[in-house]
Design a binder for these strands. Structure first.
Lengths: 219, 219
DNA sequence: CCTTCTATGACACAACTAAGTCACAAGTTC
DNA sequence: GAACTTGTGACTTAGTTGTGTCATAGAAGG
């Protein structure tokens, strides 16, 4: 389920949005001030953020700076409808802009459009010299395409999404295979071995003895 | 008790912060210039650092470079409230920003928010010159990685989480091994010995005769 | 202060368990 | 059916951990 963060100090508006988006099948979280918003942004992982510009404590423009490094798409909400402000918002890196008061239908349409667009464009993971394009399910190493099988790809994604975390065999297996791990086959090992070989990642995919594996390194 | 380092050249402000945070139950250390701050940062282990930007000798931005490799969360304090400077600070890697003059309540709120947020993301324990990263299950001593086995790691965590507490052999064994302790093997002793050796912790891991062990020291 | 008893330190080693490697067969896809 | 993917078992290699032995140190009692 897609997770949306709503940062909006007028609770009435925040709730209105929440109710409508929830009805559309999104999971919504509300923050009524900038600090709380920043908190959520850093501690949780959202698919999209709706950001009011006029906020107590930290304003929307500043909050945007928190979001940028994470790369979550943002729609600005504001009472200001002057063109200047729109341009300001978009220049700073917002992906879209909705002026209050707005039609609920328009909001939903924009949310969906952005998620669609974003899902296509920006589903990219990187680690070391490897780029993963989630949309096309392709992988490049040092710019050259590498052929991975389905399981190899899923396993790679799971590792990269949890870089520098010691992943328990159990957890890893259950995430990628979507079934319960019974610990006496060489399945996981084999796939790890294949990944290490294809990507030349002997030095990145570390074995954590008696625990599982850890993707280790800078990127 | 959470430890906070305050690096601020105006003693009046530093003390104001110290008094208020101490009242909230934090243990505070003050440094009145950048050099002293750098010293503390390298020699002790804090849960959070409040950093003034305008400092004699080494300024706050430069100090931040000392903090980064350790990963302690940082809040910048500054008289500058222009958005540019805020963004500068956040870009450089500060976790939050407070413009002087500030409300004490706001300061406390931000400190708590950051610690909360940080606690979720970054499960880190420190003792003496050793840092433990729970997520990656890695241990560093004076910045250099140290290789521990599962049992050693679990034992270390148990000790650090109960520093300055005399842990009964029974309790220690049952926590780490998850089975009942029958008291005539050299198992626990061996592991304690291995830890002492690998970490050079002869002086920190004290034997409490006929009781068990105690991790003893400042941090 | 010395003796005695017991608890812990130190260490080496064997047993054990985990993971690596590989080849192959069963299953899939085209 | 050809090419590819995937799971599995047998075997090898490697790393961890418990235990026994002996040395040492602490406590208790005379």
């Amino acid at each position: 389920m897609r997770k949306i963060l709503i940062v909006e100090d007028e609770e009435a508006i925040a709730n209105l949005i929440r109710i409508n988006l929830t009805a559309e099948g999104y999971h919504c979280t509300c923050a009524y001030d900038g600090t709380t918003g920043a908190d959520y942004i850093e501690s949780d992982c959202f698919d999209l953020i709706l950001l009011d510009i006029m906020l107590p404590e930290i304003n929307g423009y500043e909050l945007l700076e928190y979001v940028k490094p994470i790369g979550t798409p943002v729609i600005f909400l504001t009472a200001k409808s002057a063109v200047d402000d729109r341009i300001m918002g978009l220049k700073l890196g917002a992906d879209d802009y909705i002026a209050k008061p707005f039609q609920v239908g328009e909001l939903i349409a924009r949310v969906e459009a952005l998620l669609r667009r974003y899902g296509k464009i920006n589903n990219r993971l990187c680690f070391a010299d490897v780029e993963i394009d989630m949309a096309s399910r392709t992988v490049k190493r040092a710019g050259l395409p590498i052929d991975l099988t389905v399981k190899e790809f899923d396993l790679l994604v799971e590792l990269v999404q949890n870089k520098n975390v010691a992943l328990y065999r159990e957890r890893l297996y259950e995430k990628v295979w979507r079934e319960v791990y019974v610990g006496d086959t060489r399945t996981l090992d084999s796939h790890i071995q294949r990944l290490r070989k294809k990507l030349g990642w002997d030095n990145y995919i570390k074995t954590v003895f008696r625990i599982g594996y850890r993707l280790e390194g800078e990127a």
